[in-house]
């Protein structure tokens, strides 16, 4: 079942009309090419119009779109010879975070990312992309492996949050995330993070401390889900669209705050309409950002990563 968001409905209707005309052409041999072309022009105009005026809440829904490409979809297109590696060597293997060795245009890289599921069964296996301590510890193990052999790290961020359950608490979810933050800051190889969907608070940050943070146009990055924010602010989760506005969670906001270094364009109408092109644009961005980082001396790389995070935040100096 394809999901169609409310604001996508006019486009879905046009799509259905175009499909119908194409069927007539195929089945009855009647030439409808002019009508089809006209509808396709309308469709493109409509797409441009709708996607020019998206609210932060629309973007939140797009970031969570069930057809949106996930980490493995990007890995398949962007990299060659991906070998998935499993387990944290302490407790188990977390399906919500995947990682492994891969090649980016003839260069070896370590790839790590949060993975959501496509169908109900996979969603459960991947815990809806909500990683447990063993997921963060697996990620860190792979980062240290990359460091040992001088391979850069590329992470894909897409999670509603870290897993909040009893088991995760028992195994130290906070400690696992905190340790990743401390270790990633000091890692001796370049790290590039790409926010491809939901950048859900500490759960996202736990694999997103990097030299360059890139973010897709319709991804979001937030300290709290808009629903949770609305529940706290107004005791009403239904006011999430207002909260999404207040939280400034869009890619453009993240760029303005300096949290993100580049917003990666998506195909017209969002990555889910053309996953292949979306992945190619991400690949092109990675190929632009990675080589300069690989040329930097390790000390310089670590120094500038420290400064990058040290300087984030807005406060004021008031002398009493």
């Amino acid at each position: 079942m394809r999901t169609v968001l409310d604001f996508e409905k006019p486009i879905a209707e046009l799509d259905a009309n175009i499909e119908a005309l194409k069927r007539i052409t195929a089945e009855q041999g009647i030439d409808k090419s002019e009508e089809i072309a006209a509808l396709e022009r309308d469709r493109e105009r409509l797409l441009r119009e709708i996607f020019k005026n998206l609210t932060p809440w629309d973007r939140t829904l797009l970031a969570r779109h069930p057809q949106r490409p996930y980490t493995l979809d990007y890995i398949r297109v962007i990299f060659d010879d991906f070998i998935e590696l499993h387990g944290d060597r302490q407790f188990g293997d977390d399906g919500a975070i995947i990682g492994g060795m891969a090649w980016l245009n003839e260069k070896p890289v370590m790839v790590i990312g949060q993975q959501k599921g496509r169908d109900l069964k996979e969603r459960q296996r991947r815990n809806f992309g909500m990683a447990k301590p063993e997921g963060y510890r697996k990620a860190l193990r792979l980062m240290h492996l990359a460091e040992k052999f001088g391979r850069p790290v590329i992470t894909f961020v897409d999670t509603p949050a870290a897993d909040p359950g009893v088991e995760s608490e028992s195994r130290g979810i906070s400690e696992a995330i905190a340790r990743n933050l401390r270790e990633m800051i000091a890692l001796k190889v370049p790290i590039v993070a790409v926010v491809i969907g939901e950048g859900g608070s500490g759960g996202a940050l736990g694999i997103a401390v990097a030299d360059r943070v890139l973010m897709q146009e319709y991804a979001i990055y937030s300290v709290i889900p808009p629903e949770g924010c609305a529940a706290i602010l107004w005791r009403d989760p239904k006011r999430a669209p207002e909260a999404a506005e207040a939280l400034k969670l869009t890619a453009h906001d993240a760029l303005c705050f300096g949290v993100v270094d580049e917003v990666i364009e998506e195909p017209l109408g969002g990555a889910h309409r053309d996953p292949l092109t979306a992945a190619q644009i991400v690949k092109e961005a990675l190929l632009r950002h990675l080589p300069p980082l690989q040329k930097m001396a390790v000390s310089k790389l670590r120094e500038s990563r420290y400064e990058r995070y040290r300087n984030l935040g807005v406060w004021q100096s008031v002398l009493e």
């Binding site: 905190a178 933050l181 401390r182 270790e183 800051i185 000091a186 608070s201 500490g202 940050l205 401390v209 990055y221 937030s222 300290v223 709290i224 924010c229 706290i232 939280l247 400034k248 969670l249 906001d253 993240a254 705050f257 949290v259 420290y306 995070y309 040290r310 984030l312 935040g313 807005v314």
Partner: peptide, 26 residues
Amino acid sequence: GARMQEGLLSLMQMAKTCAAAARLHE
């Protein structure tokens, strides 16, 4: 926890404080 009212900037304080802690650690 992180202060919701400063959004993503509050989230980044987690990385900032851990960055400083990393230097103490080293």
